[in-house]
């Protein structure tokens, strides 16, 4: 299995956090809140599309709402494959970070 890229990881986590309410606007806000990154919608769609194509996420259509000018929400949710990849990413993270204390950073900061 391929390793997730950082931005894929963040997006998938955002979707996971949002649960049933993950669509364009909320995903963008969540990413901003979690990682302090602001992405343009255009870039977001490109990335989300890649996630869907790679099989990490799938999308389904919601109901149209008036504040969206009668357009429907496009919801995203994780696939099993996506959840698995997140798990792998987490394991990978903890294994490569193992044994490195916070002190190490404090020293270099000086």
């Amino acid at each position: 299995m391929k390793v997730l890229t950082r931005s894929e990881e963040i997006l998938l986590l955002a979707i996971w956090h949002l649960g049933e309410n993950a669509y364009g606007v909320t995903i963008r806000e969540k990413v901003k809140e979690m990682a302090d990154m602001s992405i343009a919608f255009g870039a977001l769609y490109v990335q989300l599309d890649i996630l869907v194509k790679k099989g990490y996420a799938k999308k389904f259509l919601g109901e149209p709402t008036p504040e969206r000018g009668g357009k429907r929400k496009k919801y995203y949710t994780l696939t099993e494959n996506g959840k698995l990849s997140l798990q792998t990413a987490r394991d990978l993270n903890s294994s490569i970070w193992e044994g490195i204390p916070d002190v190490a950073f404090k020293q270099t900061e000086q």
Binding site: G24, F41, R68
Partner: peptide, 9 residues
């Protein structure tokens, strides 16, 4: 066109 809904929201 549904994507535009995000912008509109």
């Amino acid at each position: 066109k549904d994507s535009l809904g995000d912008y509109e929201e």
